[in-house]
């Protein structure tokens, strides 16, 4: 555990707190993509299957349970909560996320480090996480004025990915035998997807006006 990894995990956690806060406090999920949230739920389930058979640390296990719980809570609110579900902008959330799932599965079957059931599912979760933000980014473009909490949620998610890259650089330069090419390439692609969003987020923040993605 290094400071970049810890900061990354805490930023990830904070992003989920911000999103849940928005949904619970405003009783609205306006501007939030249910497709992205469902993809994250799939990502966490397929990656954290190892909760059942491998133990790394109490920290890791608790975080995995928290991420799983928050992902399913968010999906529950957006799809089933009697008030919140009516605020979901279905017509703005049109990204074909099934293509992302299918594409990630095909890639995981083709490129993995061990051809076993759990390894392929784990690799699938890495590929799917890399692209899971796409429906949300597309939806932001269509939403017009983006509220603070939604904008901050996406910003924190992007920060978390950036901090993970710093964590990998730190680990690669300090640990022997540390190498995870699939994770690195996917993670760099994932972070790059936020570049456009970051540009407009910082620009609008600098000009002190409401976030709009042109």
């Amino acid at each position: 555990m290094n400071v970049f990894r810890l900061a990354g995990d805490l930023t990830h956690l904070l992003s989920l707190v911000v999103l849940l806060l928005k949904i619970v406090a405003t009783k609205s999920c306006r501007g939030v993509s249910a497709k992205t949230q469902e993809l994250y739920a799939i990502v966490f389930v397929t990656r954290y299957l190892d909760l059942l058979f491998s133990f790394v640390s109490l920290y890791n296990s608790v975080m995995k349970v928290v991420f799983l719980g928050s992902a399913f809570s968010i999906v529950y609110f957006m799809r089933y909560h009697k008030v919140v579900r009516h605020t979901y902008d279905r017509e703005l959330d049109t990204f074909r996320s099934s293509f992302l799932v299918a594409g990630s599965m095909v890639l995981a079957l083709l490129i993995n480090s061990k051809y076993t059931f759990f390894e392929v599912l784990w690799t699938f979760s890495i590929y799917l996480e890399a692209v899971a933000i796409l429906p949300q980014l597309v939806m932001l473009q269509r939403t017009g004025n983006i509220d603070n909490l939604t904008g901050n949620y996406v910003f924190l998610l992007g920060m978390y990915r950036g901090l993970y890259i710093l964590n990998w650089i730190y680990r690669y330069s300090t640990e022997r035998r540390y190498w995870q090419m699939i994770v690195w390439v996917s993670g760099i692609i994932q972070t790059a997807l936020y570049a456009d969003f970051f540009y407009y987020y910082l620009k609008c923040w600098n000009e002190n006006r409401t976030l709009v993605i042109p």
């Binding site: 790394v56 995995k64 061990k114 190498w179 995870q180």
Partner: peptide, 10 residues
């Protein structure tokens, strides 16, 4: 020789 991946990250 490198380990493939440690799976100790989230």
């Amino acid at each position: 020789v490198h380990h493939t991946h440690a799976k100790d990250e989230l």
